[in-house]
């Protein structure tokens, strides 16, 4: 027990002494990006507590408040900081709730992609031969179709398969599946590449000589050593997933308007763009870009920090 304690402290010390932590401390961009991401995450997680209004509580919405501009403009209303949309919902609150949906779909599909991609990548890289050839061929084929197209196809097929009223309910899951399944290739390719490198390293051969079975070798030895690049991809993929979700929702095949995501809000607002009510679409758009940019900056920094050669 006593020994474990020393190890615990060394773990923390190891992290505080690591190049990653030092690079983070020295990079203002990374810190800002990190703070923005965390703020978004917290706001999304605690949306009911944070947002000034509940935009989906029909009782609290007054149609008289519709299409109010942001507070600093002439007709602005102090209750609605960023103005209201055509139905009188507070834009600021819809953004927080929208980010909640966007991030939920984003995270869920990233985790889905990760699990599928890492598993297939490990198997492909470790087994080699025909299994590898087959998985990689499938990956190649899929790679030729942009994620958005695959997601659209899956959504279209889902529409054909399930009745309309059920589709509304299932839309979020279909979306997670569609975005998730279109993203696994990246993980699989990276993990396969790293696995090919790792499996030829002598520590894996040493484990084989001891007699450790392939499953355990993959889990205990190979997996921890391929997670570095995976984390980088996952970060960047989160940004892509959020964008993809927004795009699908913008195209009208994403989440239903009853639980709007940022993309849905932009789509709704887009109709009012020409009539001068720019705030309905611009603010959700800005929120989306800031969130994605922060995550991308974080991913970009992480990649450089993990690959010191590039600095």
């Amino acid at each position: 027990m006593k020994m474990d304690k020393t190890v615990e402290t060394t773990r923390l010390e190891r992290f505080l002494d690591s190049d990653i932590w030092h690079s983070f401390k020295k990079s203002p961009i990374a810190i800002i990006a990190f703070v923005i991401t965390v703020v978004f995450l917290l706001a999304a997680a605690f949306a009911p507590l944070v947002s000034p209004h509940n935009p989906f509580d029909l009782a609290s919405i007054d149609i008289m408040d519709s299409s109010l501009p942001p507070v600093w403009m002439d007709e602005g209303d102090a209750r609605f900081f960023l103005g209201t949309d055509d139905q009188g919902r507070d834009i600021f609150s819809t953004i927080i709730y929208g980010a909640r949906i966007s991030l939920l779909v984003g995270f869920a599909s990233v985790i889905f992609s990760m699990v599928v991609g890492i598993t297939l990548g490990l198997i492909s890289g470790y087994a080699g031969g025909r299994v590898d050839a087959f998985i990689m061929r499938v990956a190649d084929i899929q790679l030729s179709f942009p994620a958005i197209l695959i997601a659209l196809l899956i959504d279209g097929v889902a529409r054909g398969l399930v009745p309309k009223e059920m589709h509304e309910e299932l839309a979020v899951y279909v979306l997670i599946f569609a975005i998730g399944i279109s993203g696994w290739v990246q993980y699989a390719r990276t993990v396969r590449g790293s696995t090919l490198v790792e499996k030829n390293k002598e520590y894996v051969q040493a484990a084989q000589v001891i007699g450790i079975r392939p499953g355990t070798i993959l889990r205990r030895h190979v997996l921890p050593n391929v997670m570095g690049p995976v984390m980088v991809i996952a970060t960047i993929h989160l940004a892509i997933a959020v964008i993809t979700e927004a795009t699908l929702s913008f195209l009208g095949v994403g989440v239903p308007p009853t639980t709007p995501s940022l993309g849905t809000l932009i789509r709704i607002g887009n109709e009012y763009l020409f009539s001068g009510e720019w705030w309905i679409t611009i603010f959700p758009g800005a929120a989306l870009v800031i969130l994605v940019l922060a995550v991308n900056l974080l991913g970009d920094w992480l990649r450089d920090a993990m690959n010191p050669k590039l600095r």
């Binding site: 913008f250 932009i266 940019l293």
Partner: peptide, 21 residues
């Protein structure tokens, strides 16, 4: 990086707003 973070549809909307509207 901003270019990567800007969803295509939003780029389009902004361009429309600026150069078109």
């Amino acid at each position: 990086l901003i270019g990567v973070s800007l969803p295509t549809f939003l780029t389009g909307i902004l361009l429309i707003l600026f150069f078109g509207v």
